[in-house]
Lab assay of single mutants.
Amino acid sequence: MPSETPQAEVGPTGCPHRSGPHSAKGSLEKGSPEDKEAKEPLWIRPDAPSRCTWQLGRPASESPHHHTAPAKSPKILPDILKKIGDTPMVRINKIGKKFGLKCELLAKCEFFNAGGSVKDRISLRMIEDAERDGTLKPGDTIIEPTSGNTGIGLALAAAVRGYRCIIVMPEKMSSEKVDVLRALGAEIVRTPTNARFDSPESHVGVAWRLKNEIPNSHILDQYRNASNPLAHYDTTADEILQQCDGKLDMLVASVGTGGTITGIARKLKEKCPGCRIIGVDPEGSILAEPEELNQTEQTTYEVEGIGYDFIPTVLDRTVVDKWFKSNDEEAFTFARMLIAQEGLLCGGSAGSTVAVAVKAAQELQEGQRCVVILPDSVRNYMTKFLSDRWMLQKGFLKEEDLTEKKPWWWHLRVQELGLSAPLTVLPTITCGHTIEILREKGFDQAPVVDEAGVILGMVTLGNMLSSLLAGKVQPSDQVGKVIYKQFKQIRLTDTLGRLSHILEMDHFALVV
């Protein structure tokens, strides 16, 4: 994948999101292997301009796509893939009243899908469409860049269908997702969380590099694949309309690839034109409109599966009536509230959605109805927002919020430890010299600072030695090549209790 991002070429006709291997024109390309080798690009942008032909009021008969309808489940399912879809609609009884809503608040519980998330729908649909058009064949390999849930859905379907599955996901995604993927037989590649989507090191860039190296491999490409919004247009939206008897006044959905909100909203605009569509985008993402909503100094966020630093091709923002931004604290607070007060075992993005819903639905009156999409299960986040310690460490809970008995030293300040200034190293000294210094002084790690004293990161003896043994660096290389740029900081005025929580999850903390 090139470091400079080429513009994806656009073909003359058809839909841009065809499933299957992508040609340089962004659509299915038939021909000899030699032709494909000559024409197939190194990668295709996940934010390529959409060429979708959908228009409100256009006859369904003019759609270029294969459409399906929700099917009634048999008493005995032939395999677990038949437990994807037909998820329950559940009334939220307490939270709406707590925040003064007059309307009825309903939750579409997508964590009841077989793999635990709304992404099971698009995973199965992308595979079925690729099999139907002859792209996927027995023994082929599926590769997908994902925040985890699409990966789980694909790995689940691949396990049943017999495909090899490789999932490329950023490091910030939970260990629970990784464990589930491994249990399903998927191979996992992790990428830096802070890598831009168009960087060769991003999950998108690495996935395309693997595709170019592995024979008979395919990126189904949830960011561009029409099967993504079509899955929701054909099934999720129809289920909502049936469950609500066609009567709903507002739908609120958090947005990642945009397939969920695009597919549902398009069908609702056709069948229930008075329904307002509300999009939820986390602070630090750029999906919301108008652009002024996205202006923030924050560039990272903890909530998973929603928000991006690019506009995915499948996201149709014209069908969203209003956007709201959400933050991590309210997302996790509301997710825990949904679990504790409503018994809905949902993930953090569901918290984002409901946090926005109780604001947006203030305009609705008694007798009206708001539906929220709860995308995934708490299963993926047992060591994250479900953990009091994690919430404390991230600053989303305060010590006084917890009532468990603490040891005698818990409320003492870090400054009472009488710490001395640490050994520091410059980023320009060599790895070999740094190892000598650390061994001589008896230290395992040291902060790396520039000549102005600005902290650049941390270097550890173990990481340097393993990097040297693996051949990633040489003793003569500058130590700046092996620094940890993500590390926890703590102030002298913070409590030892807070430091204790940090050290339970990290090997060190830097006192500043």
Rank of each mutant, 00 (worst) to 15 (best):
S3Q: 09
S3T: 08
S3E: 12
E4K: 15
T5W: 07
Q7K: 12
A8W: 04
A8E: 10
V10G: 13
V10W: 09
P12I: 05
P12S: 12
G14K: 09
H17A: 10
R18D: 12
R18Y: 15
G20S: 06
P21I: 04
H22A: 02
H22S: 06
S23L: 01
S23Y: 10
A24P: 13
A24N: 10
K25F: 08
L28H: 10
K30V: 09
D35H: 13
K36N: 15
K39D: 15
P41R: 07
P41E: 09
P41S: 14
L42A: 10
P46E: 03
D47N: 15
D47W: 02
D47L: 02
R51E: 09
T53E: 05
W54L: 06
G57P: 08
G57N: 14
G57W: 07
R58M: 09
A60Q: 11
S61T: 15
S63H: 08
S63Q: 03
H66G: 08
H67L: 13
P70V: 03
A71D: 11
A71I: 14
K72G: 10
K72T: 04
S73Y: 13
S73C: 12
P74D: 11
I76Q: 03
I76Y: 08
P78E: 07
I80G: 12
L81N: 05
L81G: 15
K83G: 10
G85H: 11
G85S: 07
D86H: 11
V90L: 03
R91C: 01
I92R: 07
K97W: 03
K97Y: 13
K98A: 11
G100T: 04
L101R: 00
K102T: 08
C103Y: 00
E104Y: 07
L105Y: 03
L105A: 04
F111C: 01
F112Y: 03
F112Q: 06
F112W: 01
A114W: 06
V118R: 04
R121K: 05
R121M: 03
R121T: 03
L124M: 14
L124E: 11
L124W: 09
I127Y: 06
I127G: 01
E128C: 07
D129I: 02
D129Q: 14
A130K: 00
A130T: 08
G134L: 06
G134K: 07
K137I: 09
P138C: 09
T141V: 14
E144R: 04
T146P: 05
S147K: 03
G148W: 01
G151S: 03
G151K: 01
G153P: 03
G153Q: 03
G153V: 03
L156S: 01
A158G: 06
A158M: 02
V160Y: 07
V160C: 07
Y163H: 02
Y163A: 00
R164G: 04
C165Y: 01
I167G: 07
V168C: 07
M169P: 02
M169G: 04
P170T: 04
E171T: 06
E171R: 05
K172D: 01
M173S: 09
S174A: 06
S175N: 11
K177C: 00
V178W: 05
D179R: 05
V180K: 01
R182A: 04
R182Y: 09
R182Q: 14
L184F: 06
A186H: 00
I188R: 04
T191Y: 01
T193Q: 08
T193H: 08
N194K: 12
A195G: 03
A195S: 03
R196W: 08
F197R: 08
D198S: 08
D198L: 08
S199V: 03
S199Y: 05
E201Y: 04
S202C: 01
G205H: 06
W208A: 12
W208E: 08
W208Q: 11
R209K: 12
L210I: 08
N212S: 15
E213P: 06
H218C: 14
H218Y: 10
Y223V: 00
N225W: 00
N225L: 00
S227Q: 09
P229C: 05
A231V: 13
Y233W: 12
Y233Q: 00
D234M: 12
T235W: 11
D238W: 09
E239A: 07
E239G: 10
I240C: 00
Q243K: 11
C244F: 04
G246W: 04
K247C: 11
L248V: 14
D249V: 01
A253R: 03
S254T: 09
G256P: 00
T260F: 01
I261K: 06
I261P: 00
I264M: 14
A265N: 08
A265V: 13
K269I: 04
C272T: 10
G274I: 11
